[in-house]
Design a protein around this nucleic acid. Structure first.
Lengths: 332, 332
DNA sequence: CTGTTAGCGCGTTCAC
DNA sequence: GTGAACGCGCTAACAG
């Protein structure tokens, strides 16, 4: 990284003060005569001047960057959130940094970075375990949006979903249509510190409530990618389930394929339900019944963050709840 | 964002100078007596001190961040690159910023940001059109890795693939096995400024070389997501193709599903070939024949960048080529 | 060996 | 239109 020209040099070349250069470069045009303005612009151009982001951030106490904290990359919901946040941030002239938190150590690092003010605020995606309530509290002062049903606003905003209720609805439907051997096709992290994820808790609860068949082999985990989901579904066949509840639509869609490949008829032999309401669920045969929001859209959450970041006074912690429902299509 | 404590305040509380504080906080421990060290640490702890990233970057002329420039989010290859870069950067204590360039305007903004030194270096992913060679040249001085077959190293590193040759191999195979009506299932941007993408160019070339059937309706684009790919494949059915060459494995896999749903037998009636060599291609029926690298892994590219970023002297522009081949499985 | 002084990096903005 | 302070951390040079 070689040295780059500074405002001093531009000022010298244009024969004005650095203050004037700054005013010109920041569009405070009324403070500067047109002739001078041109001279400054010409000088900046000639030297190939670009301002230093670090110096500017230091002086402004603002980085014009926001941070996206996610548990992993390549999950459909993450991708959509990243897209929506990027779009909203971009409109405000803000950049996006991504921090992946997939271990307790990374959680600590993420907190450090945020406290070091690498970004003006952050949005914590759903399904970022490892990030404790205490750690969130230690981020007081950092504009934050937390997408987590268990979180309570405390200087930050919380985006919730009615996931538990919607899952319960789906299980009720399965039970009502006579399913007794309902399998759970989960991801890697369905439990952290012995605490089950929300959808897994909903499953366990439904097994109780409806007196469904239980058995450890009806629960498989690790279906984080399609290949793993395919294998996991195959391994489930030995248990002769009459329904598969998958922790994600991606897993559910793959389960449909695996079941069909095994000659199983859906939903006659086995019902399949996913979570997330991906568009892709519309093109499976049969179309996928799922639990999720009406549409996968995170602009609201992104705007909540930018709102907070751009606000003069930190607004009080807000709660936004996205309604999730059981979206019945053909597979259950 | 309220004011946070500074080294001055820590120094005052610990009754030492700021220099001592800095030495302690940066592990230059031999310069400080153990007792003093403790006092400083205690003071920092008590005040909840965290250093300012902006001030540090300004002083060090280094942000300890790298940038990932991509054309879009949510493409399997992008996700893998993001994961690998995040991992490699993290090992070096570096963070990752993402810039999405999906229009000429965004390309300009990306260049500005990079020149403003928001990051210490950047990796430009494959398939980022809109970023011109001239713009890359204007980034002289910014450590850069460009993943693009058309690029020539010029102060930056280039990562190439043997995509054209591998695609040609696939087309040769299709022709040799008697396919005449080969459809092209492309993405949105198969042409920018009238210049076809590499895989599309390979298709056009193969049509010529082998005298395959041609016709605008054998080419469809916009198959960027699975739903679009499904629809696009259905629309192709009217053309009675005997092979589908998809610009990505994701599109190809979806094409297999769409074809099977339409009662078409693969590969007997229609052969299908994708690009990318996703693991997912192993679980389709039949398994997907594809064009791509032996495995989707971008650690090398990531390391090339960190190498360059961490180097004292900028190394000369290097070229790394990843061998792509036609991976024949069951679908063609 | 331990600790301090002082200046630097660079853009922004208030008071004149 | 300008001078100068300021945001904050790092480190060379120096004193004890």
């Amino acid at each position: 990284m070689q040295r780059r020209p500074t405002t001093r040099e531009v000022a010298a070349l244009a024969e004005v003060s650095v203050a004037t250069v700054s005013y010109v470069l920041n569009g405070k045009e009324h403070r500067v005569a047109e002739r001078t303005r041109r001279r400054v612009l010409a000088a900046a151009e000639e030297l190939g001047y670009v301002r230093s982001s670090a110096a500017r951030s230091l002086r402004l106490r603002r980085t014009e960057r926001v941070c996206l904290v996610v548990g992993s990359i390549g999950v459909p919901a993450h991708d959509q959130l990243a897209r929506d946040l990027t779009e909203v941030a971009d409109e405000a002239g803000y950049g996006v940094m991504t921090i992946v938190v997939d271990s307790p150590a990374r959680a600590g690092k993420a907190v450090d970075l945020l406290r070091q003010h690498v970004a003006d605020g952050a949005i914590v995606a759903p399904l970022v375990p490892f990030l404790s309530a205490g750690q969130l509290r230690s981020l007081a002062g950092v504009p934050l949006v937390v997408m987590n049903n268990a979180a309570t606003p405390d200087g930050f905003d919380v985006v919730r979903t009615t996931e538990s209720a919607a899952c319960a609805e789906a299980f009720d439907h399965l039970a009502a249509t006579g399913r007794r051997r309902v399998a759970f096709l989960g991801h890697r992290l369905e439990q952290v510190d012995g605490r089950p994820s929300e959808r897994y808790a909903a499953y366990l609860d439904a097994v109780d409530r409806h007196g469904l068949d239980r058995g450890p082999s009806l629960v498989v985990t690790g279906a984080d990618d399609r290949v793993a989901a395919y294998e996991a579904t195959r391994s489930l066949l030995a248990e002769a389930p009459d329904a598969v509840f998958a922790a994600s639509d991606r897993a559910a869609i793959t389960a449909i394929l695996a079941l069909r490949d095994a000659g199983v008829s859906i939903p006659d032999d086995v019902a399949v339900v996913g979570v997330g309401n991906l568009d892709e669920g519309r093109i499976t045969r049969p179309p996928l019944s799922t639990v999720g929001p009406p549409a996968m859209d995170f602009h609201d959450a992104a705007r909540l963050l930018l709102d907070r970041v751009l606000a003069d006074e930190p607004p009080p912690g807000r709660v936004v709840t996205t309604e999730w429902t059981f979206v019945r299509r053909g597979s259950a």
